[in-house]
Design a protein around this nucleic acid. Sequence first.
DNA 1: TTTAGCACTCTCGGCTGTTGAGTGCTAACT
DNA 2: AGTTAGCACTCAACAGCCGAGAGTGCTAAA
Lengths: 350, 350
Amino acid sequence: MTESVRLTEREETILHAVIHTYVTTAEAVGSRSIVKRYGLGVSAATVRNVMADLEEQGYLEQLHTSSGRVPTDRGYRYYLNHLMPVQPPSPEERDQIDTELSQMVKDAQEIIRHTSQLLALISHHPGIVEAPDDTNAVIRHVELAPITDSRVAMVVADNYGGVRTMLIALDEPLPRDNLEKLNQFLNEQGEGVTFEQMGRAISRRLETSQDEERRLAEAAVRVLGLMPPHRSAQVFLEGTIQLFEQPEFHDVSKARAIFTLLERRDHLIELLRARLLTDDPPRFSVVLGSEMEPEGMEEISVVASPYMVGGQTVGILGVVGPRRMPYWRITPVVGYTAGSLSRLLTRLAG
Amino acid sequence: MTESVRLTEREETILHAVIHTYVTTAEAVGSRSIVKRYGLGVSAATVRNVMADLEEQGYLEQLHTSSGRVPTDRGYRYYLNHLMPVQPPSPEERDQIDTELSQMVKDAQEIIRHTSQLLALISHHPGIVEAPDDTNAVIRHVELAPITDSRVAMVVADNYGGVRTMLIALDEPLPRDNLEKLNQFLNEQGEGVTFEQMGRAISRRLETSQDEERRLAEAAVRVLGLMPPHRSAQVFLEGTIQLFEQPEFHDVSKARAIFTLLERRDHLIELLRARLLTDDPPRFSVVLGSEMEPEGMEEISVVASPYMVGGQTVGILGVVGPRRMPYWRITPVVGYTAGSLSRLLTRLAG
DNA sequence: TTTAGCACTCTCGGCTGTTGAGTGCTAACT
DNA sequence: AGTTAGCACTCAACAGCCGAGAGTGCTAAA
């Protein structure tokens, strides 16, 4: 996508300086302020010339004649690819991540939710975490538990350490030993296959079984179909208030636009999947809004990383914010959190 | 709280008119606009006199000398108590509620979540729903289901139609028949008591049992203690974007304040509980922000109603918005939704 | 190639005058 | 008595104007 042309050393230094000050101050940066702040051995006029060059090449832009420069997406992209220092999170951040994660309740769903809060807390931007993707989750165990005479709970455990339960309503009571039989059958079919495969297996069985047992199996298929739940319920997005801190969203119409965008969090995750998971292996990445398919997200950008259970990629997590984000700080945090979450979930799944 | 003094008929008419136009236009209303819109057989000057009276009595206020009047909280309160027409939701709204509710998945948790979305959809304001309160939920059935050798899922069904599952990790495998035994024991203890009572029952048993079985029971207590989960996870608040539509929140600092407020949704529900559930029977109510304990919510108000399962109040649902809300439209919707949800959950709980 | 100097541009904040909606008061009217 | 028309007055909102400040591009000298 972006050509791999390298800029001259001076151009790089100045691009870096512009991005750094713009990200920290949120104001268009002028030549004078750069020489003041970074005092590279040249004058403001020289810096001006270089900046003009960078603008010509599309790395910077001016909001109006005679005001400071602001990085373009291309500028950010260059920074991300070539200029950003590669570093671990600060000890304090690492500490915070470790302690928060270690004291989490032992339930996959809750861990996911808290991780998004954790990301928000540390990055000061909204955190987003997608729960493990069910479509290729493998069923570890199925259990039908009688609740009342006319209700049975179906408990399904998957290989990600997640457990889901749904109620099945029966038209009439089912004898206990019939239930046992079906239970056994389900586990024969169910272990080690995906939800979908299991649904098909039960359907086949339906053709030969009869009566009450049949009705239960029918219900089981129906429930199984429902289970890999609506993705929107499975994406946790916390800390959206943090966006109000950013001056770019002090304009209400902008704020509103971004909140609308974030409300479709399943959609956002879908876009990230397209970016992250098509590579092999899936990898860490920063996605600028303008690089995403549908228009309208120019203002935002996402630092995202896949996370894994037992060596297999199962979901995505990240931090959402304005384009003007301190990537050098957020990037390490997201990477480290992804690693820690992967370890935690793997341990949990046993 | 509010004295039951009745205003004169003309005062009531004019108060009603002011509130109605203010709610619809969001702008301070003047005497002329009222006579134009409602043409009661008097002149603007007369209306002015009455409005001055109403202001003196605290039902209206002026933002600055010589601009239209705006209702005060006292004015709204009077309107709610005496002036608001009592009416059912419109047929379209009723229809929408019925169809949306009827096609919901048969899972208590999901129903609750969708109900908050439904409220937001119909009222055009954020909808809030508190999941059934677990503290006095009664356990219907407990089932320990083996997942792997070292993991057991504990499934608990309550009398509200809710089913919760949590994983228990074992230090070492537990023989299947031991599990059966414990299962049976749990159900003897567990049926018809609250979570807390059950926890105590198991603890007692612990003293006499030994070895593996003991460890499992210990774990069960631990899990049971965790189960009535963090309230914040149990309050669903959807459609917050809708607030951006309201002109009062076009000011970023106001918008931010209210979003911060809503982020603590567990807290908000707690305040509503204090208002709604102390009455006996708990009843439908509109709560103005200024009537709530801690300062800071003057800008908002909530139309809320308890809902029930099997005749017992189990939770609260409602609509959150600016003080300037079309109560005459929202109130019936909330009431009707509460009724429908109650019926649905009762049916589900069987 | 770099730098100093300078004229120029554009935003932003403050100030001013105007407009319009709406009020309160008074005097006449029913 | 209560109601209404008339009128002077108030105040927010808006537009226009000005000056300050930050920053630029260009040119000519180092």
